[in-house]
Nucleic acid binder design. Structure first.
Length: 668
DNA sequence: CGAAAGAGGGTTTTT
DNA sequence: CCCTCTTTCG
């Protein structure tokens, strides 16, 4: 529990925390450094409001990741009193809930939410054969567009920010973007940014803002430093209609890529008139040695965070720095430490393993599976992102929304001997029949006549079961079972089939296909949550640093802190990106309570780089964050497996002058 | 000629 | 693992 362990008062809060919890100002910003009890304070504030008479459903806690939302929900829930749960959810989930609950206010009734993969398909569709515009691939265009929308800048500005070196004609790119927007509208798709944008646009109407704001006594926002301009556009109009209680730390801003500007938290007072700013500065989480290393990292920055964490708990063991030859050795050593700790009687929940990328997490995941160590991987592959689940859901989607082109194309190309061309023809036939007024079922009967009968029969069966979503999922999985078993025959089909059974179970309580898919999209379930131990069982946590904010454990292993990774090579040349990388590492280091083990591969050679552009550019002798690490701050161990010296050959070995290298031709 | 299968190359971070 | 390009198959 963050922030526990102080002597003042029976509620476990220190003086600064209590002041923050009981503040009477209408708007508040709590600036809280790592480990100072940020989540504790939010949770205590919510309890305080409820104790003061607020109805739980008049309080709203907004977060940026679904993990953080789950954390708040579970900690607010008082086991003693079965009060109705306080809504804690991501910005996106809340925005969508508002839109869905009040279609007469927001519109967009019957539109489908699409995720990044679907966006990509739509963009590819409008790009046509070349699949590129101005040298940018579909994914890059989506990226620029999303950056523009989240930062509320023009496309041209976003291009300049994201691709400063490329010569891109914004006009030409703009046409591709317009085509993408038109296609989305035509198919009634809302992408993630649309969900926020719809909300922001409608809240501009003061009557709508008053009405929405009137639903809440107080809106709490976790990790305020990650708020981007699009999200501010939702907050701003509500400021006069409800109270805001925001908690954040500029040193932990790591969502710049999504448009967050960590400096915006400094102007909170001007943006939100009458806001009181409170500070939490005592770290209750870590030992001083862990904070010394973290403080040192931040002090190397040209930016002035003005942070110096002080450990209330006092002194402990020095952080460890372990160097290995390969990532496999690294993963093997971490696994070995976990097993050793288990033998010493420590529970699996002692440990947190932090990785920079999903990709690098997989190597560790594999070793955990190998050793039967129960774990949950936050930020790992989401169930919905796996291909087999998308395959099955495509069958549900065409029932829920017969115009869902992406789903139709995916479903149809699953049929043997059907590729893009045949599928597109069939989809056009569906559209044409529907335009003539045919029912969805009749449209399918005509358009799919030339395709195998199981597809039509299967879709009809799914439609009949549409009210029972788990039944519908089961029918879709059954219909596709033969083709999927073939498609994934060399790719772990058995495990994938089990996933599909999980999806069926998840669907059990949902009211409609649309509701289920939307819930699944906006609050994704991680694959490992289902395949690993049950949620409440004792387990190790593997997490990307981005998903780990707010998490803490007795031991933390920060893996892959190698030269070329911190900072990553692609961030060199941009001070802002470089500093965000620094903050990522800072977040990682500050997760540990007692033992911090930083691991890395290969011997360090200095990474020299130019940082910045124009007059502000400077040459950095060693960009690697740990390149200049003072020896005193860590205990370093180099794990290079000693190569066993080869014994000398026995004396007098006969060496042939030549070896016969020709192949035996056999009988010709 | 379109579709399927196989080989090779490359990966940020989240909703 | 995921996407793309190339080769092979029907």
């Amino acid at each position: 529990m963050a922030g526990a362990g102080t002597s003042e008062g029976g509620d476990g809060l220190n003086q600064a925390q209590r002041a923050a919890v009981e503040t009477g100002a209408s708007h508040n910003l709590v600036l809280a450094g790592a480990g100072t009890g940020k989540t504790t304070t939010i949770v205590a504030r919510i309890r305080h409001l409820i104790k003061g008479g607020a109805a739980p459903d008049r309080i709203l806690a907004l977060t940026f990741t679904r993990r953080a939302a789950a954390e708040i929900r579970s900690r607010v829930q008082d086991p003693a009193r079965a009060s109705s749960p306080v809504p804690a959810m991501t910005f996106h989930a809340w925005a969508m809930r508002e839109v869905r609950t009040s279609p007469d206010v927001f519109g967009y009734d019957g539109w489908s939410v699409i995720d990044a993969d679907d966006q990509l398909q739509v963009m590819r569709g409008v790009l046509g054969r070349g699949k590129r515009v101005e040298g940018l691939k579909a994914a890059q265009i989506i990226g620029v567009l999303s950056f523009a929308r989240n930062t509320r800048r023009t496309l041209a500005d976003a291009i300049a920010a994201k691709h400063p070196d490329a010569e891109i004609d914004a006009k030409v790119l703009g046409e591709a973007v317009r085509a993408y927007e038109a296609r989305k509208r035509e198919r009634r798709y809302l992408d993630y940014d649309d969900v926020l944008a719809v909300c922001a646009a409608r809240l501009k109407d003061p009557a709508v803002a008053a009405w929405v704001g009137g639903h809440y006594d107080e809106i709490l926002i976790d990790e305020m430093q990650d708020t981007n301009p699009l999200q501010w556009a939702i907050i701003d109009p509500l400021v006069t209609h409800t109270r805001f209680y925001c908690v954040g730390d500029d040193a932990q801003s790591i969502y710049g890529f999504r448009g967050a500007d960590f400096a915006s938290i400094h102007s909170f007072g001007e943006r939100v008139p009458g806001a009181r700013v409170l500070r939490l500065e005592d770290n209750y989480r870590s030992t001083q040695e862990i904070l010394d290393l973290s403080n040192w990292l931040l002090e190397q920055s040209p930016l002035h965070y003005g942070k110096h964490l002080r450990a209330v708990r006092g002194s402990g063991a020095k952080p460890e720095l372990h160097s290995f030859e390969t990532p496999q050795d690294e993963a093997g050593w971490i696994t070995g430490e976990l097993l050793r700790a288990r033998d010493d009687g420590l529970p699996w929940s002692t440990h947190l393993i932090l990785v920079r990328t999903n990709y690098s997490g997989r190597a560790i995941e594999a070793r955990l599976v190998e050793n039967d160590i129960p774990y949950v991987f936050f930020g790992g592959t989401k169930l919905l992102e796996s291909r087999h689940v998308r395959d099955v859901l495509s069958a549900l989607r065409v029932i829920a929304n017969p115009d869902d082109e992406v789903a139709w194309m995916r479903l149809l190309t699953l049929v043997p001997r059907v590729g893009d061309v045949t599928a597109a023809r069939a989809f056009d036939a569906v559209l044409a029949a529907r335009a003539d007024g045919a029912s969805a079922r009749d449209a399918r009967a005509g358009a799919l006549a030339a395709l195998p009968g199981w597809l039509r029969a299967g879709l009809d069966a799914i439609e009949e079961a549409a009210g029972q979503v788990d039944d519908a999922v089961g029918r879709a999985a059954a219909m596709l079972q033969p083709v999927l078993a073939h498609k994934y025959r060399n790719e772990n089909w058995d495990a994938r089939a089990r996933d599909l059974a999980h999806v069926e179970r998840l669907a059990a309580t949902r009211g409609s296909i649309t509701e289920f898919i939307e819930e699944f999209l906006l609050s994704p379930v991680f694959a490992s949550e289902l395949t690993a131990e049950p949620k409440d069982g004792d387990h190790v946590i593997v997490s990307t640093v981005h998903s780990a904010k707010g998490l803490e454990r007795d031991w933390a292993f920060c893996a892959g802190v190698s030269a070329g990774a911190y900072p990553s090579a692609r961030s060199l040349g941009d001070v802002n990106e470089l500093e965000e990388e620094r903050r990522v590492l800072y977040v990682a280091l500050t997760r540990a309570r007692d033992r911090l083990a930083v691991t890395r591969t290969v011997a360090h050679t200095p990474v020299r780089a130019w940082v910045g552009t124009g007059a502000s550019a400077g040459f950095v002798e060693d960009a690697y964050f740990l390149g200049t690490l003072p020896e005193l701050l860590v205990r370093e161990t180099v794990h290079v497996p000693g190569r066993a010296p080869r014994p000398a050959p026995p004396p007098g070995l006969a060496v042939p002058a030549e070896v016969d290298l020709s192949v035996d031709l056999g009988e010709l």
